[in-house]
Design a protein around this nucleic acid. Structure first.
Lengths: 345, 345
DNA sequence: CTGAAAGCGCTAACAG
DNA sequence: CTGTTAGCGCTTTCAG
């Protein structure tokens, strides 16, 4: 743990280059409108002194921070169970980095933290926020709207409040689910069960809706609630085998759930896909490729979702500064999914 | 994307409360040495105006940011393959939050990014850094030393430079490996193979050393290099079965590797644990509990590692400010591991 | 115990 | 094109 040295200031650079602070500032910020020889001199002085601008001083006057908050609600739930979050974060990071923005990560644990996050956002520490509000009835979106920070949501937020200007990036969960179930139908299956995700998340609800779109008058007993975890998948699968021993296919709300279901099917002596075909959702590689048999699933480009969220936010920020409301506000994006065929269906 | 409203300043609060800016500042920062009735008045004004201090202005004078950078090198490698990183991050976040510090996440992709990170750290945007330098011969530690930012490393860094004051938090990889192998020996196994991790990471090297501590004159053919991934585990296991068909146990460098090995063992018709006992490392629940059979493994408390890193860093920062070198500098910590017995050994 | 005053380092008019 | 001049909002001596 070394000591932080005293950093040189604009003043010092100006003195060394024999110009005014203003000129140094201009050069440091792109050098427009400064004659070449001066630019050279200043650059040299900056180099020699190892000058780095003080971001606090700069923010104080520009009111920009070049920093974006990423808010993740309640990591305990799903976020840390699979690499989903990590991938999305990576996409976000790449995009932010490309635009010289910093990523401030705000993880919340339960209700108390909401207030803290709200305060932080309202405090004007960041230029915008990327929010993963996974749960229905989450107070976060409201808080954020109140804080007045430009925001893009990850996943369609379920929000009863004012929807104007709510921007989100989501996968086509419903369409993807339809594809999955249609694929099973195409395989000649008719008793197709569905293990849902945690139904307090819009993604789970949307996937269930997609299932219903195809299985218009499905036997209600074929639908069992899961929670996006392998354990939930096991539990649900056991229940299904009791309720509907004649089922010949399962559409699981995600790959982890499918993995749990596969295990139970194997234990019960059902062959996959011969007796029961199984389709998952996510195409989480470490999971989908490792199950036995490997998993047919619906792929979504998670990293791209992250990148897109960041892009949308930054674009909005720009317009904000430049055109003041001219041009359409950025609008939500729903990314397509693709079915990946492997061995399980 | 809503507009950012004009925030009230200290001045405004002072006016409303009928006191000076200085007094408001004192109250906001703890209220020491201000008479109770005034404190009340100020608090009320703050409340009514929804005042939140401007961090940039504050940092400008205090030179504190109450922000810590978390630097993760090359996410592609291991970090995003398993929930390891996410858990550690969570521990870090909890600790930082408890001390009112923000978490600035810096993900790097390749060499070019190192320079960017170095610049950022040197720029004095944060009070300290938590660095995951997973690879041998990583230039990052050097850059950081150069930047002069107080730093705690996650995992023992392999660093040829000046070791003075290098602080890290690590698991007892070597001891844990010894426990694992001893357990296998205790089970009466004698032909115990080891699938290593990626040997450009100290954790992999340390686990290999632990294996060798117990298997002092092990047949060198029993050691095969893996890379911490299931695919690597499969490849290594296949090779082992060819090289040493008589092996009766495998110690895998992590759970993912073990999962791959288990799959190959099953395919090859070996029963686990009857024919071949298998032990992993990490106790990554989603993996270790889901394998068939469930995995005996070495547990490390990953979240605690993260928490500890943050605690160490913050403590160092404090001392820095207060005592200026008095008292011992924080030193590295190696956390113990425990063997978790399940079905595979 | 409280207020007045002096910057922290930088940018952004505004002159020249 | 370049320099001068005000602050941005806050903390912190220093007087009173």
């Amino acid at each position: 743990m070394t000591d932080t040295a005293q950093r040189p200031t604009l003043e010092a650079v100006a003195a060394r280059a024999g110009v005014s602070r203003a000129t140094v500032s201009r050069v440091v910020n792109g050098g427009d409108g400064v004659r070449e020889p001066l630019v050279e001199r200043v650059r040299k002085a900056v180099e020699e002194l190892g000058y780095v601008p003080n971001q606090a001083a700069r923010s104080l006057v520009t009111r920009r921070h070049d920093a974006i908050a990423v808010v993740v609600a309640e990591p305990e739930t799903r976020v840390f169970a699979d690499p989903f979050f990590a991938l999305q974060l990576r996409g976000i990071s790449k995009e932010l980095t490309a635009h010289d923005n910093q990523l401030v990560l705000l993880l919340t644990e339960g209700r108390d933290d909401h207030a803290r996050v709200g305060r932080y956002l309202a405090g004007g520490h960041v230029d915008g926020a990327l929010v993963f509000s996974l749960h229905l009835d989450d107070p976060l979106p409201g808080l954020i709207q109140h804080a007045g920070v430009p925001t893009v949501f990850g996943g369609r937020p379920d929000w009863s409040g004012d929807r104007r200007g709510v921007v989100y990036v989501d996968s086509d969960n419903r369409g993807g689910a339809r594809d999955a179930v249609r694929h099973l139908v195409g395989l000649g299956r008719s008793r197709i069960a569905h293990i849902t995700g945690a139904l307090d998340q819009t993604s789970a609800v949307d996937r269930l809706d997609g299932y219903r779109d195809v299985m218009v008058d499905a036997d209600p007993r074929l639908i069992v609630e899961g929670d996006f975890t392998p354990a939930g998948g096991e539990r649900a699968m056991r229940e299904l085998l009791v309720r509907c021993p004649d089922l010949d296919a399962v559409f699981a709300a995600n790959d982890l759930t499918a993995a749990g279901a596969l295990r139970v099917l194997r234990e019960s002596g059902r062959r996959v896909p011969e007796d029961v075909a199984v389709v998952g959702f996510d195409d989480m590689l470490p999971v989908a490729e490792q199950t036995e048999p490997s998993l047919t699933t619906v792929r979504q480009d998670i990293e791209e979702m992250g990148r897109l969220m960041a892009r949308l936010l930054l674009r909005g920020l720009d317009r904000h500064a430049v055109e003041q409301g001219v041009g359409a506000a950025p609008s939500s994006v729903v990314l397509p999914t693709t079915l990946v065929r492997r061995a399980s269906a």
